[in-house]
Design a protein around this nucleic acid. Structure first.
Length: 290
DNA sequence: GGTAGACCTGGACGC
DNA sequence: GCGTCCAGGTCTACC
C-alpha cells in the first residue's frame, strides 16, 4: 500500500519529526538526522501495520506492507494527516513571528508543526510519562508499555503497537507500577485508560472540539496526573498554544535568556513571553535560545 | 489562594 | 556493592 498526501504549505517533514522528543518514544522509530520515521499502528480492524512516512513533493507518502482495505487506507491517511499536521495553516503564527529575530528561523525552515501520536489518548499517556522524571525515564516507560501490552506486528514480535485503552484498563495497576515501572504514575494511567475504555471520557473528540481553550484546558486538567505543565503540553499538541509548558527546563532557559542567570519562577517565564499572547506557547517552543 | 510534603525511579556520588 | 542524595511535576492536606 502506498498513499500520497499533500500538505498545507510551507511544510517540512524533517522539521516536524525534530520538533520534540516524541520520535524517540515507541512505537515511533527513526534514525538521526530524522528525515523520515516509522510508526507501528493498530488499526480499528485489529490489523497491526508498520507505517513508513517519507517526504514526497510538497507533502508525504505513507507505505505499508500488504493490501489494505479502502476503510483501512482512509484510516491511515486520517491518522498521518493528524500526526504530522498536514492540514495546519500557520500563516497567523508566521505573521506575528516575522519581525522577531529569535523566531525568524520558523518561517525560513517551515517549522511550527509538532509531531503527534495518532490518538490523544496516547499523547496524554506519554505526557504523563514525561512528568517528574528524566527523559530517559520517559523513553523507558513508553517502551515498557508497548513491549508489555502492545499488539505485535505479525511475523515480528520485536515491534508492537501502543496499547489500546481497553488493554491498559484491564491491566492491574500494580502490574503497571512494578512490571512497567511507571511508579506512582500507574494509577493515573490506569484510571485514564478506564475512563476512555468505558466511554466516560471521549478524548479523541477533544481533538476537533469547538470548545474555547479555557474550557478545553479544564477538561484536560480534570485528568488525574495532568497538571499545569502537562495541560500546556497537550494544548500545544492540539494547536492551542495559549499556555507555556513550564518545567525545570523552562526555568533554566528563561533565566539565562531574559534574567541574566538569576533564579526565576512561573511568573517570570510567563512575563518573558506575555507579548506573544495566544501564540506564547509556540513562541516559547520554537524560540532560538542563546 | 498559597504552601509543604509525599509520591517513585534512575543516576550520580561517596564510602 | 551498598547507602544516600537529588532531579523531575502533580496531588492532597492544611493554613
Amino acid at each position: 500500500m502506498r498513499i500520497t498526501l499533500p500538505a498545507y504549505p510551507p511544510f517540512s517533514l524533517p522539521m516536524v519529526i525534530r520538533s520534540h522528543g516524541w520520535i524517540q518514544l515507541a512505537p515511533f522509530a527513526g534514525e538521526e538526522p530524522y528525515e523520515t520515521f516509522t510508526y507501528l499502528d493498530r488499526l480499528q480492524s485489529g490489523r497491526v501495520v508498520l507505517l513508513r512516512v517519507e517526504p514526497e513533493g510538497d507533502g508525504v507518502c505513507v507505505t505499508a506492507d500488504g493490501d489494505l482495505t479502502e476503510a483501512e487506507q482512509a484510516e491511515v491517511a486520517d491518522k498521518v494527516r493528524w500526526m504530522v499536521g498536514l492540514d495546519r495553516d500557520l500563516a497567523l503564527f508566521y505573521a506575528v513571528a516575522q519581525d522577531e529575530p529569535k523566531l525568524a528561523h520558523v518561517i525560513a525552515q517551515a517549522r511550527g508543526r509538532i509531531l503527534r501520536s495518532p490518538t490523544l489518548f496516547e499523547d496524554t499517556v506519554k505526557t504523563i510519562l514525561t512528568t517528574n522524571t528524566a527523559w530517559s525515564g520517559t523513553i523507558r516507560m513508553a517502551q515498557a508499555l508497548v513491549e508489555l501490552y502492545g499488539e505485535p506486528l505479525p511475523g515480528d514480535d520485536t515491534r508492537r503497537a501502543f496499547p489500546t485503552p481497553e488493554r491498559l484498563a484491564e491491566t492491574d495497576v500494580e502490574d503497571l507500577r512494578q512490571t512497567a515501572r511507571l511508579g506512582y504514575r500507574a494509577p493515573y494511567v490506569g484510571e485514564l485508560a478506564r475512563r476512555v475504555a468505558t466511554g466516560d471520557l471521549d478524548l479523541e473528540a477533544l481533538k476537533t472540539a469547538d470548545l474555547p481553550t479555557p474550557a478545553l484546558r479544564q477538561e484536560l486538567l480534570a485528568i488525574k496526573g495532568v497538571g499545569g505543565y502537562a495541560v500546556a503540553n497537550l494544548l500545544l499538541l492540539l494547536g492551542r498554544p495559549d499556555f507555556i509548558p513550564i518545567d525545570s527546563y523552562a526555568f533554566k532557559m528563561v533565566s539565562n535568556e531574559f534574567y541574566g542567570g538569576a533564579p526565576v519562577g512561573p511568573k517570570e517565564v510567563e512575563a518573558a513571553f506575555a507579548r506573544w499572547g495566544e501564540w506564547k506557547g509556540m513562541a516559547y517552543w520554537f524560540w532560538d535560545w542563546s
